[in-house]
């Protein structure tokens, strides 16, 4: 069974292209176009194996979404990989401090993203 990735990003074109890339690599993807939709997807649909999360979003920003995910036992264990155009160190530190698995910058290197997702899912394997 393929690993399911939830992509939460308000930039639909980017979600779409990342989705194509990930599906081509063998992932199943689910796309949410803003923060609250992402939370809804994470709780209603089958639990994803990893989440790719944007930071700047209109309703809930990525940090808030992450906080909700981490505070819900159902979703707390899902590895979160931030993918943001915000290249400030402080944002990166905040994300890592808040329990994110990784913080990757846009424009991203697709190979790096795929590798990070694989690593993250792999890291969770023993507990599954």
């Amino acid at each position: 069974m393929a690993d399911r990735i939830l992509i939460i990003d308000d930039e639909a074109t980017l979600s779409a292209v990342l989705s194509i890339r990930l599906q081509a690599t063998g992932f199943e993807t689910e796309v949410a176009n803003h923060g609250s939709a992402g939370l809804a997807a994470a709780s209603l649909l089958p639990v994803p194996d990893a989440i790719v999360l944007d930071v700047r979003m209109p309703d809930l920003d990525g940090f808030e979404v992450n906080l909700h995910l981490k505070s819900n036992p159902r979703t707390a264990q899902i590895p979160v990989i931030f993918l943001s155009a915000n290249v400030q160190d402080s944002a990166r530190r905040t994300a890592i401090a808040a329990g994110a698995y990784a913080y990757l910058k846009k424009p991203y290197d697709p190979i790096e993203v795929i590798q990070t997702l694989r690593d993250a899912i792999q890291a969770r394997q023993p507990s599954r």
């Binding site: 930039e11 074109t13 980017l14 292209v17 890339r21 155009a85 290249v87 846009k106 991203y108």
Partner: peptide, 16 residues
């Protein structure tokens, strides 16, 4: 930041 997002889109579509 604003530049990056479309840049990423361009770059990523070019890439796929």
């Amino acid at each position: 930041h604003e530049f990056r997002t479309p840049l990423t889109v361009i770059k990523e579509y070019t890439s796929i």
